[in-house]
Amino acid sequence: MTGRLVRCGPGALVVEVDGPATAAGLASRLRTRLPLLGVVPGAESVLVQAAHGSLPDDVAAVVAAALAEPADADPGSGRLVELPVHWDGPDLDDVAARWGTDASGVVARLEATELTSAFCGFAPGFAYLAGLPAELAVPRLAAPRPRVPAGSVALADAWCGVYPGASPGGWRLVGRTDVALWDLDADPPALLAPGTRVRLVPA
């Protein structure tokens, strides 16, 4: 695995890699090696940050060692979560038109795709699920909805996401699940932590 280290001042560095699967795998390995630091995967990068102050001197060497490790534990090896989905999202027909199919075609495609949580963001427990090809990318709504219900299954670019709680949102809504995505009493509290594999199944 190769990566480019970008120093961001004394307190942070970014490791640029080739894609979401590499980023999630590298972040997972770095977290066990650097338990005192924040390790945050992105779409094509991993951020390593000190909570307050400076990174330790050996952090670049630790990153280099993690990059040199075989990436055997990356794709396909994470925990599998099945999410039962009611396919009744208000944007289902819109997405179907963009994909050149009908609503049942969208559902069939999504149910046939194994997704992987690449990284989290936007809200606690909101996972960016990779797996759809670039040609199925859809734009965000021109104007975000002021309120998207919790459990909404949504698409934006080539990402799939599930809203853990009610919030404003600009993704296109295709369905909803009753499964709790965020539970403070669980460990980890995010059901779809990076690396988790996800299957959307009929509710």
Binding site: V39, A51, H52
Partner: peptide
């Protein structure tokens, strides 16, 4: 001192 180590779960510092 916040929650600095949970960023990967979408938890702000």
């Amino acid at each position: 001192l916040g929650r600095p180590s949970l960023g990967h779960l979408g938890v702000p510092a």
